[in-house]
Design a protein around this nucleic acid. Structure first.
Lengths: 136, 136
DNA sequence: GTCGTTGCAAAGCGTTTGCAGCCTA
DNA sequence: TAGGCTGCAAACGCTTTGCAACGAC
């Protein structure tokens, strides 16, 4: 059975309302604003559950902790900024077309994929010098 | 100054000669065949140095340790098998075309990217039932 | 002989798990 | 009231770092 708790609601809302994918500890830090005693383990437990229900997807930026974003059914391309280290989700329609999966050698059955691009985000490329990595 | 050591040579050769991307501990295990006292930390130090020199690239399969492969200048697409958990590098020309980077919203400067596909590899899809994950 | 490199052990970091108490349904 | 959920602390796996000994040049 599935129970409703304030903790689960808070974590879900934070991910749903976030403007970009967040790490578990970023989510935890934001949730603590509402629920000061919330444990980090509880945050992980909810993220794992939501992910297993396909309501959430984890995005891996190499060398950094997993970021989580709400799964709204739309495939996204992710962009990692090498200056401020933030990860952005770029939605289709903004200004690009999604690639089609390539045809692989015989025997490989594809049922998913992820594309991550690296570079400099608008904020960091406008301010020439690199921005000190910060999370929020 | 850069010194020539047996450890560095062994690690470099193992990655160069591998048929697929390997984790640090797989590389270490293979290297121990030649140099029984080789430390895992030394393996990591060499991998990091080779990566910083762009002679090696790290590939991240979500939820698993980083795999390393030799950077032969050719862009590759990676394929992660969800059954045996191995990671394969598929080279262009085998049977697919590489996608072009999409046009992103104004301000995003792209200088790299990675594409990982998930599914079932030939070995696992021929043997219907899933294969117990094993490393070598 | 110099100083980059090594092996070992310990520390660091993100994530998971064990457990007793709590609280939702 | 039953049993899923919580917070805490300990454990875990991968990776990095401190340090004294080693060995390439």
């Amino acid at each position: 059975m599935q129970r409703h708790t304030r903790q689960g609601t808070a974590i879900r809302e934070i991910v749903q309302q976030s403007e970009r994918p967040l790490t578990a500890s970023e989510i935890h830090r934001r949730a603590i604003g509402k629920l000061p005693n919330l444990g980090l383990a509880t945050t992980y437990r909810h993220l794992r559950k939501l992910e297993s229900e396909d309501r959430l997807v984890g995005v891996d930026y190499p060398g950094q902790p997993t970021r989580y974003e709400w799964a709204d059914g739309e495939q996204k391309i992710h962009f990692g900024c090498r200056s401020c280290e933030k990860l952005f989700a770029v939605e289709e329609g903004d200004d690009f077309k999604e690639p089609k999966p390539p045809k692989l050698p015989h025997g490989y059955q594809v049922n998913g994929g992820e594309w991550i691009l690296y570079g400099t985000c608008p904020a960091c490329s406008s301010s020439q010098s690199s921005v000190t990595p910060s999370n929020s």
